[in-house]
């Protein structure tokens, strides 16, 4: 292989005039973090609501939750992003479609919503599993004390359920971060996008993607460590899963 290695490429100025190649990757990293955090918030909120719906005694709520989960988790993420980005503006009324197409930062919003909803189906399944893993008597005890269903979930079931599903939720958060790279296909120049741009400008493909890999690794390690601390701080003394 006749490849010219050049690790100092990161400190050379990039032709787009915004600084060095490293600055390029770091600005991509920033966008990756922003996109992941916003998508994760959507995933948590929608996932928690839908997951709870699937555990309610109401058959209608449970069916709606089931349909939601199966819809969002059974379609590839790439297809979902294409639908949100390319198909949606064409099928809504014309002026709405125009507004969507002219919206600034459309790739960012589309990625946040698309990845957020895709991940919310998975968070919903975790939430459902967490609530269902609690003894049936917990709900009965709360109900017998006069708590309403909403209060029972808020004060009794969800605080325990979320503690139990904290480790799988960490994995889902990591998946969210990694999945933002798919948004490159709708023009979001996040970390992977910047790495590809760097490769195109400098032809240093190995360095560019090694840089991106290291940065992905770093944020994921930060997330893992932070979640471990969170797990430990909310652990319950004497309770087995809290250990």
């Amino acid at each position: 292989m006749n490849y010219h290695w050049n690790w100092s490429i990161f400190f050379e100025p990039a032709p787009n005039g915004t600084g060095t190649y490293l600055d390029m990757l770091l600005s991509g990293l920033l966008l990756t973090i922003e996109t992941s955090l916003c998508a994760w918030i959507i995933a948590l909120v929608f996932g928690a609501v839908v997951g709870v719906m699937r555990t309610l005694p109401s058959k209608a709520a449970s069916r709606i939750g089931f349909a939601y989960v199966e819809f969002f988790r059974n379609m590839p993420l790439l297809v979902q992003l294409f639908i949100w980005f390319f198909v949606l503006p064409e099928i809504v009324p014309q002026d709405w479609g125009l507004w969507l197409k002219q919206m600034p930062h459309a790739p960012f919003y589309t990625a946040v919503i698309g990845i957020g909803l895709f991940m919310s189906a998975r968070v919903a399944e975790q939430t459902r599993a967490g609530v269902n893993s609690l003894p049936r008597g917990q709900k009965m005890a709360a109900t017998a004390l006069g708590l309403t269903t909403a209060q029972t979930y808020r004060y009794v079931l969800l605080p325990m359920a979320f503690r139990i599903i904290m480790p799988p939720l960490t994995s889902e958060f990591l998946s969210t971060i990694k999945n933002t790279s798919v948004a490159i296909t709708i023009g979001l120049i996040e970390l992977t996008g910047e790495a590809r741009a760097m490769q195109e400008f400098s032809f240093q493909v190995f360095e560019a993607f090694t840089g991106a890999t290291v940065l992905y690794l770093l944020i994921n390690i930060v997330v893992v460590v932070a979640m471990r601390f969170l797990e430990r701080s909310i652990a319950i003394p004497g309770y087995i899963t809290g250990k």
């Binding site: 003894p135 008597g137 917990q138 005890a141 017998a144 004390l145 006069g146 325990m160 309770y239």
Partner: peptide, 16 residues
């Protein structure tokens, strides 16, 4: 229900 106390076989205290 709030006016009737109930005690269960498995205690069902809220662990958190």
């Amino acid at each position: 229900r709030a006016r009737v106390g109930m005690v269960f076989q498995h205690f069902e205290l809220f662990p958190h």
